[in-house]
Design a protein around this nucleic acid. Structure first.
Lengths: 223, 223
DNA sequence: GGCGACACCTGAATCCGATTCAGTATGCCA
DNA sequence: TGGCATACTGAATCGGATTCAGGTGTCGCC
């Protein structure tokens, strides 16, 4: 997710950009944004703390980049999972399940995104900081819009009951995201168990019967 | 909610304790914890910033108190709403709806609670700070436990389908809480509209049909 | 085969909020 | 009337993030 995205290309090979991002994800994900020290991120990458400012305008800027990248990846995933739709219920289940098929790193990204989303609300004055914030906000909107559009279409087809698509989107994403508030890799629950449960409940929100209890189609990834 | 709770009794009449709490709720709710300046809270109460330390050990301590008080109120509300149960589905709806019948101040408390819950995770060294943190965590657990117990009982009675009560609790509370991430008083949606929608979806998660579309029983409060 | 630009990095300040310190008023009760 | 708790203050201090003023290596290009 964040860390191997778009801008990685055409960056000098010795650039620590992605290493910093990765270290920051670890730190923010482990201790929370507020409690992690920016200087520690530098240390764990092996540079002095002032060198961080060569890559990011500020600690906050780095956080915004992580969030924006994460959202970008989620959006791309959503679009990939909904490219061709024959069967709406099946596609919905696929998309929802896709939201849980994540590497440990991606789980951390989601935790950071969800835990610190409040920081996206306040306007910033520094340019790159504000730019990254806007990008993250735009992606949030894009993702919500994509969901709402998709759900609208499903309603038109009669695949799910009529409802306000915006609110329904918020409900589904709200439930889905709530997982990252408490889920920890290595806890007593596996991500697969959580996914089974929450996918079913997301479908329930949409007004769909809880489905296919047997074979869960698995795909992609491991980092 | 926080601000008029238990400890208000037996505090000197000229104490600014509750005024600080209230100002902090406004500030943290408006700008987020990180972006609000502790000194501004002092200003808006009309005292110097060092006077804050007469009442709270730190800014964080104050936040924890707000969270713990809020959780305490929610727990009390839950208990009140589930004291006698004749009809599980009706009681569930009542409880869920109760979670939305809040004053503006209480809405802010919930926003703060949800937005900053990540800060509850990290251990603190200062005593009163850690004490308040523990209190908040304990109340969180209490609330989850109360819900899980209640849902278990509902399952026993056959009122709702069998499922892991812990996970089901997390799903219901997760969806319910997600509202405070985006709801703003004075937005285009009224709290009543949001409540109608989200109560229905919470019930759907529980496996209950979406109910009583007509008269929503309203109760209590306005601050 | 030298030079200019730029990516990358550093140690020593600085800045800004939160917090501590050392002490002053005020009320209240014995 | 003096003792003691509560309520408060201005002047430090502290701890992170951030800025400053450079320094080194590498690459492209003449």
């Amino acid at each position: 997710m964040a860390g191997e995205t778009t801008q990685s290309r055409r960056r000098s090979p010795r650039s620590k950009h992605d290493a910093i991002l990765e270290a920051a994800i670890q730190a923010f994900g482990r201790d929370g944004y507020e409690d992690s020290k920016w200087a520690d991120v530098a240390k764990s990458v092996g540079i002095g703390s002032t060198a961080l400012y060569h890559y990011f305008e500020s600690k906050l800027h780095c956080l915004y980049v992580i969030m924006a990248d994460t959202l970008e990846a989620r959006l791309a995933q959503f679009e990939a999972d909904t490219r061709e739709v024959s069967d709406y219920p099946a596609t919905l289940e696929r998309v929802l399940r896709g939201g849980f098929e994540l590497s440990d790193q991606e789980v951390l990204c989601n935790r950071v995104l969800i835990a610190e989303q409040a920081l996206l609300a306040v306007h910033r004055t520094s340019p790159r900081e504000e730019e990254a914030r806007q990008r993250a906000r735009a992606r949030t909107r894009d993702l919500e819009f994509a969901w709402a559009t998709f759900l609208s279409r499903a309603m038109e087809q009669g695949a799910i009951p009529e409802a306000d698509p915006r609110l329904l989107t918020r409900a589904v994403l709200g439930l889905h995201n709530s997982v990252w508030h408490w889920y920890r890799t290595g806890g007593d629950l596996t991500l697969a168990q959580v996914a089974d449960f929450f996918v079913a409940r997301c479908l329930a929100i949409l007004g769909l019967p809880t489905p296919t209890p047997a074979t869960a189609t698995s795909r992609r990834r491991a980092a």
